[in-house]
Nucleic acid binder design. Sequence first.
DNA 1: ATGGTTGTCATACAA
Length: 271
Amino acid sequence: MRFTVTTWNINSVRLRIEQVRRFLHEVAPDVLCLQETKCPEDRFPLETLQSFGYRHVVHCGQKGYNGVAILSRYSFSARDGLELCARRDARHVSITLGPDAGAAAGFVVHNFYVPAGGDVPDPDLNPKFAHKLSFLAEMRRWGDERGPAKAPAVLVGDLNVAPLEHDVWSHRQLLDVVSHTPVETEALETLRGEAGWVDSARHLTPEPEKIYTWWSYRAQDWAASDRGRRLDHIWVSPDLAGALRSVEVSRGTRSWTRPSDHVPVTAAMEL
DNA sequence: ATGGTTGTCATACAA
């Protein structure tokens, strides 16, 4: 059976609830992972999201910042959130889907929101960048502790790193810009490789083709300048790599009224 | 070299 999962940094789920409705109507993934819901638990639009056909929802939120959620057409048997960097930041949530989602033993979907890291790419001068590097180090340690994948798994999210040369509009000009500095790209690629995750977008669309999932709000004309970065990722465990059929970047949502600066990325698998 | 925009919460701060 076909299984689809989407990751989307929504930059306020309450402000963009209509965009969520439209996207779910048009693309209808089985599972939607959101980041930056920017919404405390008691103000999360649970019933509205459920009315879009996604009965199974988990939200991990806080006031003003961060926040991750997973919407699913299938029931899940467990939910869990990691607490990284000893902060109660809402930057991770995971679910375990049951057999009705297509994998006999079920599988885990992890949804991460990696810290953006501020503007100055020096951990000694910029505590936000230090936090980002610590977060990536803890993701690496978490992967080491998990060990080799015993069951199919998916890791998605706004990882706030564009790891490869053709994941940014200009590799040379972004080498000292947070999101594409060597210390970040090497950290992300190392933790991904050690844990055996397959980068689904690059598995199906290798370099040198450019892929972007984020365009700054500050550009006068984001589409004309097209100075994007690939910050949003869908990784799959090695046993799922052969099941990948497509990875779609919903670039069109960036042109919707009052868009998020990130667009949805959807992977389809034949399980 | 600089500033450019958006969202939350109501004043800076994070992205």
